[in-house]
Design a protein around this nucleic acid. Sequence first.
DNA 1: TAGATTGTTAATCGATTAACAATC
DNA 2: TAGATTGTTAATCGATTAACAATC
Lengths: 205, 205
Amino acid sequence: MAKQIPDIVIGRLPVYLRALLQMSQEGRQVTSSQELGERLGISAAQIRKDLSQFGEFGKQGTGYNIEFLANQVKEILNVNRVWDIAIVGAGDIGRALAGYNGFSERGFRIQMIFDNKPELIGTQSGPFTIKDSRTMKEEIQAAGIKMAMIAVPATQAQAVTDQLVEAGVKAILSYAPVNLNVPPGVHVQNIDPSIHLQRMTYYLE
Amino acid sequence: MAKQIPDIVIGRLPVYLRALLQMSQEGRQVTSSQELGERLGISAAQIRKDLSQFGEFGKQGTGYNIEFLANQVKEILNVNRVWDIAIVGAGDIGRALAGYNGFSERGFRIQMIFDNKPELIGTQSGPFTIKDSRTMKEEIQAAGIKMAMIAVPATQAQAVTDQLVEAGVKAILSYAPVNLNVPPGVHVQNIDPSIHLQRMTYYLE
DNA sequence: TAGATTGTTAATCGATTAACAATC
DNA sequence: TAGATTGTTAATCGATTAACAATC
């Protein structure tokens, strides 16, 4: 079994990757742990330590080749391929996600979007025709989709989650403001703007 | 000066609060650190430890009164009041945020939304008329708004941030996929779905 | 060569957990 | 009273930082 990497380290890698790709777009060739750290507000030592968990990617005296390191991090994170994604919920948030063009360049491709509202089913959301939730499990399974984003009301989120798990989905990004329970081996990330806001109000007057 | 509370503890409080309010809606009166922990996937000891940083809110043998504890946590987090918020960027995400009705019950009120696109300025987004970004600093300052959400392209995010800081904004929730630099005393939280997704692909096959 | 920066070790710092007296 | 659960202390565990030899 491979060495166990702390999840907190995994959580920082996508941030490093985003910064590297941005530097690359700026036409830069080389960077250092110090420069990266300054951009991100992270210590240089931590960046070197994090990367050293996976191998040696730099050169003493010169630093890191940006393109090379970005590719290595992509490989570590498993995003040197395309992941198909299903969206559940075609309200404002679901449709905004369906129309977001930032996914393709980061390794993701929206494949389908579902809703249970009769008035939405069959209508267009950008390039997608909104599908009936009742066919969800079947279609996701048939397509072999492993990742989903949930944008349904809190009250429906757990039921949707259970169905996605049954369909073989292994990673869920949830926009529903509720805690989801999943079996071991299924991963969940939550995005709830109120939670993020409340985390900052503590520090305000 | 008050005792320094770890930021990681502050980060868990909104999650506790959300669970407490949900229990309250379910008609429950009392809970325990153990039950809360099971719901949230957090150890009971950690919940007790976190809360003990701020006072004694429970009763030995019986646990915590849900409504009382929720109110205490609201007070700690400074959300026993209403915070006015400005949204910058009236694209899909900005408009979805403007139309999201989950904010009011969590202590937040959207006050205004801005964009710099001539074809959007003056049009409606739900109950709001989209305002011209050029008046942003002035209007935010005049209204005394301290919190903002940014939903503009990555390329514009830092410039918008700088203006918000100038206008006196102290807390920013950014949906732009880029790292923002702010002076001390200004708080930033980032929401980038690709980052959350990439954090999970590591664990997938 | 001299300067810069890595990868890594050891030291420090901080967070989590276990355990239990206090007490409802 | 007996059972349950808190608040807190001490022990454990894990993450971050400082420092430096190696070396480009």
